[in-house]
């Protein structure tokens, strides 16, 4: 069982969360060339090691989080709110 330290709720089992995928993906402008969109939609680095990823605390505070996790060892790193404003408010 992975445990995720939600910045709002504290340490919770991962079964309270829903996985949202690679958090390093950035989408291009709407009118960007198709190749850029194809890259963003389909291509992943899929690292064997440290991975930055989205988790939704769907059975908790319902916040989207950015979690650093090692995909080989499942070691957990930093957990922050995905929403930049929330993340800043918590830091402040």
């Amino acid at each position: 069982m992975i445990r995720i330290n939600c910045p709002f709720c504290g340490m919770r089992d991962h079964s309270e969360f829903s996985y949202g995928g690679d958090a390093t993906v950035t989408y291009p402008e709407m009118d960007a060339p198709e190749a850029e969109w194809a890259e963003a939609v389909y291509q992943r680095t899929n690292p064997r090691g440290p991975h930055k990823e989205y988790w939704h605390h769907v059975s908790g505070c319902r916040a989207w989080l950015i979690v650093e996790r090692n995909t080989l060892t499942h070691e957990m790193g930093a957990v922050t709110f995905a929403h930049a404003g929330l993340a800043k408010a918590v830091e402040g």
């Binding site: 069982m1 992975i2 829903s18 991975h51 990823e53 996790r69 995909t71 080989l72 060892t73 499942h74």
Partner: peptide, 13 residues
């Protein structure tokens, strides 16, 4: 298990 992983081991949920 629904999250990226290279660990060849499972979990209880």
């Amino acid at each position: 298990d629904f999250y990226n992983s290279y660990a060849q081991r499972g979990n209880l949920p």
